[in-house]
Design a protein around this nucleic acid. Structure first.
Lengths: 371, 371
DNA sequence: TTGTAGGCGTTATCAA
DNA sequence: TTGATAACGCCTACAA
């Protein structure tokens, strides 16, 4: 079989250019360009001739050429750890909605939270001259040369979910501290006293904030901070599974898990150990999803406004691209506690309500707006 | 507050070009270009001078300019209905992995299965001169002018999940007929006799194939095809919810649901009607996800190889871009029945096994490779 | 092996 | 209001 290299690429049948239109309508390229970008100062006469030629030749401006000339690609790069992590699709969707609304496209990259891949992605995006970059930063620092290059090209970045002040202070994040605090407070309210944590990797900002919220809520509730009940995971299923085994062996009566994937792992571990939720341990998890309203155990979660996260980040970035000189800003979105059953609390409280919610597809969790 | 329009965009501090490198290293741009694209015939002497200059100036080739000159962007466009539909992230991830491996980037668009949005996306991608497009086609036909334009520019398309022969026969899909057939056969095997369907919109190819599989399996099992037990949904939660109410009111004892989102809706409806799964009705659903292994009811599903779907599609597209002239091909990937509990079948069968599966994070559903 | 010059399709600067 | 013509940054015959 012939190697791919040897095949000659099908050459695009050169489509009509602005010159072809100019010739066809017997005007200069300047005029054609003016018509395309509908400037006002074009004689109605010529305009019509040009438009006719455009239709006739089925002319479409070549955006690559335009980008080269205008030094703007109307493309923004977005780097996420993994689009297959259910947290990110809605964030990306939010960003794409905002981008599209303002005439931008999204170039998507996955970093797997690996610095090397992230650096490669950034370099590529910069070489492709994206107008700006939306980044959920991996834990480690960029190497200095990349850092310098970023400064030189002056391409704006907006951080998503995680801060990284060495790069930029512009960021859109969620109030993870508050979310964790609320989750743990709620567990305490539900009567749990031995509360454990399965958290994220402490080298990323979200994990730190969630851990601090956990810690401070315990303190406020006068509950013990028990080292053996603290597990550091990596936001993936497997770490929730292993961490779950370790944690459950110490028999906590309440657990706060810092994201959904680790919760899946934890539940798997619990099952293997023959432990039930909420009977044997109360559970509050982060991230909410539509399916959590129908499966058991009904998870009490702290929902993060994923779509908004994406739109706000994209919109901030687009403002920066447009030259907004206002000082850098960290926008912190508020989470929302959704009380269902896994915390072992809702049943006694919300039973009266649920009858009234008939005929609604939306899930019937009790919603508590936090702050 | 000043309008955005009035701000002047921060102009990128013009980064070093190939000319700067040429001047710095006192050679011609030709040589620089040769070095960048590491051709062989470059004097070791000059090569080193050039490389030094590149480092010194922190030079990065401008890929936009390169794209204009070479008529290749090394970018592929991907249009999906909605990245927030949990089915697609893994497909996109697969495509991105393959793209990245071959030096391509992914420009992502959401169509919401709305023709108008899809057409806009296609036009934009073509204007941006992507080298090829991965498309999950919305139901209706492209308007003729777009169709013609696509033919003219000669940009290759590969269809994902759904066929649309009017555009191209190149497609990577799943064997939906077989998957549905297997699902329904399994329900019959589990002793269900009144089997209902909540299917997708019959204007898309996947929904038709799944319906046919459903129908033929019933026939093969000598079970009645009961019109009141057939619901046409739109693959969204809400339609599963409404369809679920309608369907359940006729008391089927088995249900096949053609995708995950509609299953969520169905379960919601069942709950409202006080019906249990699998006690009151056996259930087999499409699409499998990690979390289905830990929540109840444990869903028996037909898993589709999402990641592979993306990689195969991207790789086929990249071959087309490279000029592979072989005739168009529909690649059909095989689904996999994952038997758990919602079908009301597994408990009696696989209980012996599950004890042995300790200490594995992977879910312990019985896996039956279909064909 | 290396250099020169023209082209890729737009936009933008001057004149006219 | 229009039209030449020069960028934009890179590639690539064709020459040397």
């Amino acid at each position: 079989m012939a190697s791919l290299k040897q095949l000659k690429p099908k050459k695009a049948l050169k489509s009509a250019s602005i010159y072809d239109v100019a010739r066809e309508s017997e005007v200069s390229v300047f005029t054609v360009s003016a018509v395309i970008n509908n400037k006002k100062h074009v004689g109605k006469n010529l305009r019509e001739r040009v438009e006719a030629a455009i239709r006739k030749l089925n002319y479409r401006p070549n955006l690559i050429a335009r980008s080269l000339a205008k030094q703007r690609t109307h493309t923004i790069g977005m780097i996420v750890p993994d689009i297959a992590n259910p947290f990110f699709p809605m964030v990306v969707r939010g960003a794409e909605d905002a981008a599209q609304k303002h005439g931008y496209n999204l170039l998507l990259c996955n970093s797997d939270d690996i610095l090397a891949k992230e650096e490669v992605a950034v370099e590529l995006l910069l070489s492709k001259r994206v107008d700006g970059i939306l980044l959920t930063k991996a834990a480690e620092d960029f190497r200095p040369s990349l850092m310098q290059m970023i400064k030189e090209v002056n391409t704006p970045f907006v951080l998503v979910m995680r801060t990284y002040p060495k790069l930029t202070k512009d960021a859109v994040i969620t109030d993870d501290y508050q979310g964790a605090y609320d989750a743990v407070s709620h567990l305490a309210r539900a009567g749990r006293r031995r509360i454990g944590l399965i958290g994220g990797p402490l080298k990323v900002s979200t994990a730190i904030a969630r851990w601090e919220g956990f810690r401070d809520a315990l303190k406020a509730e006068h509950l013990p901070y028990n080292k053996e009940l603290i597990i550091e995971g990596d936001y993936r299923i497997e770490s929730g599974f292993r961490g779950g085994h370790a944690l459950l062996s110490h028999r906590p009566d309440g657990i706060y898990v810092a994201n959904h994937l680790m919760t899946i792992g934890l539940l798997k571990a619990a099952e293997e150990m023959g432990l039930q939720c909420p009977e044997d341990f109360g559970l509050v998890s982060f991230d909410d999803y539509p399916w959590l309203g129908v499966f058991r155990p009904r998870l009490t979660t702290v929902e993060l406004p994923k779509h908004q996260l994406g739109t706000e980040a994209a919109e901030l970035l687009i403002r920066r691209i447009a030259g907004d000189p206002s000082s850098a800003v960290v926008k912190k979105l508020q989470p929302e506690l959704r009380i269902r059953e896994s915390c072992g609390f809702a049943r006694s409280m919300s039973q009266g309500q649920s009858r009234k919610r008939k005929n609604r597809a939306a899930d019937d969790s009790a919603v508590v707006q936090v702050k």
